[in-house]
Simulated assay, not measured.
Amino acid sequence: MISPGPPTVWIDDSHAIVRRGMAACLQQADFVVRGESATLAPEPVLAGLDILLFEYAGPTLRRAVRLAEGNNTRLVATVRDVDEQAVREIVDAGVGAVLPHSTLTPDTLIATLRAVVAGAVALPGDMLTRLLLHVTQSSHLGPTRLNPRERSVLRLLADGMDTRGIAEDLRFSERTVKNVVHDVLTKLNCRTRAQAVAVATREGVI
């Protein structure tokens, strides 16, 4: 569960000026920056932390995932070079959102982190296309039956709606929406909402 009050974030990037710039943007948007690091050194303290914003690299990704195990911290990766390997590794690791440096602005940074806190899918459209290709080629993901309620929730996730918005649109409680999303992820053998949207799109169910 996300902590009450302003969302908390730890910022990791190899460039100090980038870290400071992101921190300034987020603090102006009422985020609480709990700390910063380069390649996860010093090691972030994730207890009670809402978001770990880190710079993607193979070893850094694996370490971030390990640190987040057993915590409710959500992972957001910034990516300097977006290629097929990066997309596969990031999505398969269960990262909640991706921010390409080429399109990173104060507005996209703030909007993406707010979306992640609210439980929305936060993946750029071109990256979602690559993800769809990746899951299409994954042989372990077979046809799965989804009930009408699950399909409705998935359609709204695909539209970029967050948990609260879906609950209001479908007149469900937020807890119900979260339970439905959990069931969908289990049925589709997915770790993230973005991955579930791509799989459902591939199977033609939304």
Rank of each mutant, 00 (worst) to 15 (best):
S37T: 09
C25I: 04
G204N: 00
T136C: 04
L75W: 08
V98Q: 00
A57V: 03
G160Y: 00
E84S: 13
L123E: 01
V32L: 11
I166Y: 02
D169E: 15
P148L: 07
G160I: 09
D159I: 02
A29H: 04
D30G: 00
R149A: 14
D83I: 11
V95K: 13
V33F: 04
N179F: 02
R34V: 14
N71K: 04
V121A: 10
V135A: 01
V181E: 14
E84I: 11
L49C: 10
T60M: 01
M127Y: 02
T60G: 04
K178S: 10
D83T: 09
P124G: 13
H140T: 08
A77D: 14
E89H: 07
T60C: 11
A38L: 05
D169Q: 15
A68E: 13
L156T: 05
A64D: 09
S14M: 07
L49I: 04
Q137E: 12
T144A: 14
S37G: 09
G5C: 05
G204S: 06
Q195S: 11
A29Q: 01
D169S: 15
R20V: 15
V32Y: 01
R155L: 12
T176F: 03
R62S: 11
E174L: 05
R62G: 12
R88K: 06
P148F: 08
H140L: 11
P7W: 10
L26D: 06
A16Q: 10
R175P: 00
A93E: 13
V9N: 00
S102R: 13
M1H: 13
E84N: 05
L113D: 10
I2T: 14
E89T: 01
V135N: 02
I2C: 00
T186L: 04
A97F: 08
S173P: 03
S139N: 10
V91S: 14
H134Y: 14
D92A: 15
S14V: 14
T105D: 05
T108I: 09
G94F: 03
R114P: 01
V180W: 03
A86Q: 08
S37M: 07
L49P: 03
E150C: 06
K178D: 06
F31P: 03
G96W: 06
V121Q: 02
D107I: 02
V177N: 11
V153S: 10
G142S: 07
P6A: 07
R74F: 04
V18R: 04
T129P: 00
Q85L: 13
D12V: 09
D30Y: 02
A120Q: 04
L109G: 01
L157W: 00
E168Q: 15
A158H: 10
L75S: 09
S37F: 10
I90G: 09
R193Q: 14
S37P: 08
R171P: 01
G142A: 01
V180I: 15
A111G: 09
V199P: 12
A24Y: 09
T186I: 04
R34Q: 13
R80M: 11
A47R: 10
V197F: 02
T112I: 00
M22S: 01
V45P: 01
R202F: 10
V65L: 08
Q137F: 13
E203D: 14
A77E: 11
R145G: 06
L154V: 15
T144K: 03
T192K: 02
